[in-house]
Computed example of a mutant assay.
Amino acid sequence: MDKAARDRDIEGRARNARPRDGLGRPLPYGAAGVERQPEGIVRSPAQTLDQAQRLLDEGKPFHAHEVFEDAWKSGPEPERELWRGLAQLAVGLTHAARGNATGGARLLLRGADRIAGYRDPYAIDVARLGAWARELAGRLDDPVDAAAEAPRLIRKD
């Protein structure tokens, strides 16, 4: 595809406009896909967690990763690694659901390590999430059901 024919956003940057499935895989142009998450949205931590949890529960971890990525890129510096780690957990689940056991396990473990230093900010159950990620990474052989494997992000006290 030549440069002139590439998909572009309203600012002229290259953006792939192909529809995507729930795991973020591109579909043919014109196919019905899953609505993509808008990029660059600044949300409160509670809004980020609510939106990401909804997407995880729906079996859309790729889309949840995009929500976490916005928080990672727009959040305060001391929290960026937290949001980056949560994004990696979501991408790890995405790869696991797509059948990429090696990539899924690596990202799950990387995300678990990245969030381990935080002490449950915003009621995020860091220890439980880390344990979930390590357990899932240790049993990946075949594709998993993303919705069935979706973690709970916050404690329910």
Rank of each mutant, 00 (worst) to 15 (best):
H65V: 00
A4H: 10
E79I: 00
W132H: 08
R110I: 12
D2M: 02
R98I: 06
T102K: 09
T102F: 07
R110E: 14
P38N: 04
A46M: 08
L56M: 07
P19V: 13
V67D: 04
R13G: 00
V42I: 14
A71Q: 14
A137S: 11
A4K: 05
N100I: 06
R54C: 00
G33H: 09
Q88C: 01
M1G: 15
W72N: 02
K73M: 14
E149K: 12
R139M: 12
L107H: 08
L23N: 08
G30Q: 09
P121D: 10
A4M: 12
G99W: 00
A4T: 14
A5K: 14
G30R: 08
E39V: 10
P28K: 05
A137L: 08
A31Q: 12
L109D: 15
R98H: 04
Y118G: 09
A150T: 09
R18I: 03
P76D: 15
P45N: 09
G24L: 02
I124E: 10
E11F: 15
A90D: 07
D21Y: 11
P121H: 09
Y122K: 07
G40N: 07
A97P: 03
S44Q: 05
P28H: 11
D120C: 04
L153D: 02
P45E: 11
P38F: 06
P26G: 07
R54I: 10
D7P: 14
R20T: 05
L93K: 05
E81Y: 02
R84K: 15
Q37I: 11
Y29A: 13
W83T: 05
L140I: 00
G103N: 10
D70Y: 07
L82G: 03
K73G: 03
E81D: 15
E79N: 02
G75C: 01
R15A: 13
A112F: 08
R114G: 11
E66D: 15
K156A: 09
A87D: 02
R8E: 09
A150P: 08
E135K: 12
R128A: 15
A32N: 10
A105M: 01
G92H: 01
M1L: 14
D141A: 08
R139L: 06
P26E: 14
A131F: 12
F68N: 06
E11R: 13
P38V: 15
L153C: 04
D70H: 10
G85L: 02
R8Y: 12
T102P: 01
A17N: 12
V67P: 04
G12V: 05
V67M: 00
A105T: 06
G85V: 04
Y29W: 11
R20Y: 05
R98M: 12
T48L: 08
I124Y: 03
G92M: 07
G130L: 03
D70R: 04
T102R: 13
A14W: 08
L129V: 11
G85T: 09
H65L: 09
R152T: 11
E149D: 07
L86R: 04
R25K: 10
P61E: 07
V144T: 11
A97C: 11
